[in-house]
Design a protein around this nucleic acid. Structure first.
Lengths: 251, 251
DNA sequence: CGATCAATTGACTTAGCTCAAAGCATGTGG
DNA sequence: CCACATGCTTTGAGCTAAGTCAATTGATCG
């Protein structure tokens, strides 16, 4: 919504993140320069959103903060009660959370059939936004960049498929544990041992992304709390006493 | 497993399918030639599998038949009964179906952390298999091809995310209806009106891909049958009387 | 310091899972 | 060509995890 005053910082983060995976020759550097030219470094205040510009697909690179990717899909699990007078049957499209995103992530915000996507800031958010068209026009001359973007998209595909299986085949407790492990890794930067961090999303967000209700999320957290695997602190605070135990719980 | 006797046919189907989305200039034609050189046209008998070659990722293009993409993931929803003596807790990895694939699909068979993937033939299957590395080496010189493959992968990502929401937020009946609508489109080539075709997958496959049990799938089919929305005929036969009604049911 | 919204907790209901027993196809060998 | 065996599918009878509804508690902010 509003252009950041720290434009250069966002771009630098973008360059740095990609450079780490690049051979570092001058060709790549030039491509990165050109990408920085077509990219828009922006900041969103917490709660604000960005979406695919009309018929333009977007590729968004996150440099700071946390975000949720939302899709407005046809409403689900409506009461079968056909007698209900105000049964706003299929016209309502309620939003669902597809994924959470953190610094270093590429997000593909395409405007396809599946209902329009938007990226909402869970905290103040720094990002670099590209028109998908422009990004590709620049990147297509550089095999290394192309490989990165393609491999990221295939990675995202497999992460999504894995999550799909988890939602389809795991219990509420397992999903919750899996979610917390993932957050510890993404937010806390921990993959083992103890870990303390702040969850940027609400219970509603968590529930939605896991295919549960807020009540169930709350109960599972309470249960993990009682089992002394975690410790919740207020609305957002979280301490994990032993990540590997949680991983075990996640199956 | 066995090289097809109709090698040329598979390649032709691959060329034709890509050509339809290409500008049709000589540059593209040359790239297609080179892709055909590095691709292996193969046939799998029903029931056989193909997987990522050791540490080599594969890109597979389906030219005929039907297939399921399977991942071996950590076992889920184990009985919490810790007293059970033979509780083979987390070492067992049971396979789950990620997606069904049909002619025209690109399948990305990568060997990542998420458990090895394999593509299993539901019917006799014709495909063109590429080493991901070789495919990219050829394709990276042709922006048009790169765009296609990237857009396919992003498409697959969004299909997977949509399915994830459906599994997480829809009832068994809605999922079943949605599945049948999708199959009508993919197998029967119908998007409205009546439609009759043969389901290549078993109830177990369906159940697994929807995150349900075979019993529930069977019951939902029976229920849709009684509602005269569909008509099952033996193990595989299916007739949909009105796809739009089913779509309504799917939400 | 209320007002408001998020989160928890409890009581109850139910969709879908589990276990178990038939019922059908499909393929095989006599 | 038929009988049988095997594996898929259907159907039934509980049971339970998770959803729904409702009331309370707790945070956060003007």
């Amino acid at each position: 919504m509003q252009v950041s005053s720290t434009k250069a910082v966002g771009m630098d983060a973008f360059r740095a993140s990609l450079s780490a995976h690049l051979p570092g020759n001058t060709a790549c550097e030039r491509t990165l320069d050109r990408l920085c030219e077509v990219g828009q470094s922006r900041s969103l205040l917490c709660g604000h959103e960005i979406r695919g510009h009309r018929h333009r697909d977007r590729i968004i690179f996150i440099t700071g903060g946390a975000a949720k990717l939302i899709a407005a899909t046809p409403s689900a699990r409506i009461a079968q009660n056909s007698a209900s007078a105000v049964a706003d049957n299929s016209s309502v499209r309620l939003p669902h959370i597809l994924a959470f995103h953190f610094p270093g992530d590429f997000v593909f915000v395409v405007n396809e059939a599946a209902g329009d996507l938007r990226l909402a800031a869970l905290t103040d958010l720094d990002l670099v936004a590209f028109s998908s068209e422009q990004f590709l026009r620049v990147a297509q001359d550089d095999p290394a960049i192309i490989r990165i973007i393609l491999s990221r998209s295939v990675q995202a595909l497999h992460r999504s498929q894995t999550k799909m299986i988890e939602i389809g085949h795991k219990s509420a407790c397992q999903r919750m544990a899996g979610f917390l492990v993932a957050m510890a890794e993404r937010i806390g930067g921990c993959t083992s041992g103890a870990c303390q961090f702040s969850l940027p999303m609400t219970r509603t967000d968590i529930a939605d992304s896991l295919g549960l209700t807020i009540e169930t999320v709350s109960r599972q957290l309470a249960s993990l709390n009682k089992a002394e695997l975690i410790e919740t602190n207020g609305r957002n605070g979280l301490r994990i006493s032993d990540i590997s135990k949680l991983k075990l719980e996640a199956g």
